[in-house]
Design a binder for these strands. Structure first.
Length: 450
RNA sequence: GGCGGCGUGGCCGAGUGGCUUAGGCAGGGGCCUGCAAAGCCCCGUACGGCGGUUCGAUUCCGCCCGCCGCCUCCA
């Protein structure tokens, strides 16, 4: 079974599924108020890779990722644009799924929306009040962090040091600086839902508690998200669940940030690149390869040079896929797949897996060059199996080539047969100028989109 | 201030007390090719600084320097 770093325990520990053969995952999804950037892309890819690998391993995965469709930022944007908040949320949610599709992230098993669970959230808050873990103030309902003895577990800090470090103006209505809002009473003009405390909206941290427990049940296997969610978001989710006696998530997994010039990419710093821009400028699969090249908990630097690097590496993998298409169909090399499994099971060691992919690619090419076709085929099949298991689909086909370009290729073959090299080179230049890659093969001129 | 992490060859990025000291990209030489492309072969002796432990440290310990993250909305 796979071993993963657990933020709560601070070490790599085996994943022990609650239900044998099945894995339940909850990954905090986006607040839909704007375009997704590379950071969102990374978390989506990291957990997509984990999910696909678990499925490849034969486990039945239930993957839940929510859509936060009510939040101050959505309300702000709607107000600025003079639109309804739900209209803004719908627009950006649609954009989110388009971006996810562009980078090949599989759709979650369930994609619950916060606004569909408001009644359940109200019920949960009522229970927290009844337990003495929450209290009402003039502007809302707050959770009392002191109600949970190990508050600070995910932050790996004591509640005292968290309080001492509070950098925010202390809200006078809160009893403690680390207390957080469960329910925000609506000001005039703000969207609202009815509650025992008057019209208002839920705080961010409650939705994930209700939706994860509701869809996956208590003690679900994995709760994931970006490192910046560990505290306070996940800490606060956990606090609510624990206050009500739930075990909640068994395993907490957090991915590292995307950085630009050594700094975290974030909307507030304004140093972000939209996922759609990247997908439009390059083969979106290269971003997955880029993400796989680093360990999921390490920061990754993304810039033009690094992106070009990944694109070039991807071209080699595609080249192997094309070559492998001419080899016999044989089972993938078992020893290589065993290595792959070992590396992946070791806290998702994808850098080692990329290493293994390229070594195996090299082995396949070498065997083919030396005429050991079956060995090449087995190694090639292993590369395809591994890339497929982590969601990297290699392109073995040569793509669509227009009839006029194909005609140029045939003319070039004729010229080459006639040993008219000047004509052959001119035709090749023409095909390249049209944006295609030309390669000679035993069957003649091969042309594919560049 | 508290907590955590990082500093590796031109670039990206793994890893390890010594042994064959990843992988990718870029670069140089060669093979193949009419010339290319793709592929193959060969080539780089790097681990922030100063001490310490050790037969031996990039890897362990201490200190220092530099950088980053969380403690606030944030993937």
């Amino acid at each position: 079974m796979i071993r993963l770093y657990d933020t709560a325990r601070g070490e790599v520990v085996p994943l022990e599924p609650r239900d044998p053969g099945k894995v339940s995952m909850y990954v905090c999804g986006p607040t839909v108020y704007g375009p997704a950037h590379l950071g969102h892309g990374r978390f989506a890819l990291v957990f997509d890779v984990l999910r696909r690998y678990l499925e490849w391993s034969g486990l039945e995965v239930t993957y839940v990722s929510n859509i936060t469709d009510i939040d101050d930022k959505i309300i702000d944007r709607a107000a600025r644009e003079g639109r309804a908040h739900d209209e803004v949320a719908r627009e950006w949610e649609a954009a989110w799924w388009r971006s996810m599709e562009a980078i090949g992230v599989a759709r979650p098993t369930h994609d619950p929306h916060a606004t569909a669970f408001v009644a359940e959230m109200v019920a949960l808050i009522e229970r927290l009040i009844a337990e003495g873990a929450a209290y009402e103030t003039d502007d809302g309902v707050y959770f009392s962090a002191e109600a949970v003895t190990d508050y600070g577990l995910l932050a790996r800090q004591s509640i005292e040091s968290l309080q001492a470090g509070a950098r925010v103006e202390v809200d006078e209505t809160k009893r403690s600086p680390v207390d957080f809002a469960l329910w925000k009473k609506a000001k005039p003009e703000e969207p609202s839902w009815p509650s025992p405390w008057g019209p208002g909206r839920p705080g961010w941290h409650t939705e994930c508690v209700v939706m994860s427990l509701g869809l996956l049940g208590d003690g679900f296997d994995i709760h994931g998200g970006g490192q910046d969610l560990a505290f306070p978001h996940h800490e606060n989710e956990r606090a609510q669940a624990r206050a009500l006696g739930h075990r909640f998530a068994a395993h907490w997994v957090h991915n590292g940030f995307v950085e630009v010039g050594g700094e975290k990419m974030s909307k507030s710093l304004g140093n972000f690149t939209d996922l759609d821009d990247l997908a439009a400028r390059s083969d979106p699969r290269s971003y997955r390869l880029l993400v796989l090249r680093s360990h999921y908990r390490s920061p990754i630097e993304v810039n033009e040079g690094v992106a070009a690097d990944a694109s070039a590496a991807l071209r080699r993998l595609d080249a192997l896929a094309r070559r492998a298409a001419t080899w016999p169909t044989v089972p993938a090399d078992a020893a290589t797949l065993e290595r792959f499994r070992e590396r992946m099971d070791d806290d998702l060691d994808t850098p080692a897996v990329v290493d293994l992919m390229f070594r195996t690619l090299h082995r396949a090419n070498q065997a083919a060059d030396e005429g050991r076709v079956d060995e090449a085929a087995a190694a090639g099949a292993a590369v395809m199996e591994m890339t497929g298991a982590v969601g990297l689909e290699l392109l073995a086909d040569t793509g669509d080539v227009p009839a006029e370009v194909a005609a140029l290729a045939r003319q070039r073959d004729e010229a080459r047969t006639a040993r008219d090299w000047a004509a052959a080179d001119a035709l090749r230049d023409a095909i390249v100028a049209a944006g295609y890659v030309v390669e000679d093969t035993a069957e003649g001129t091969s042309v594919r989109p560049g």
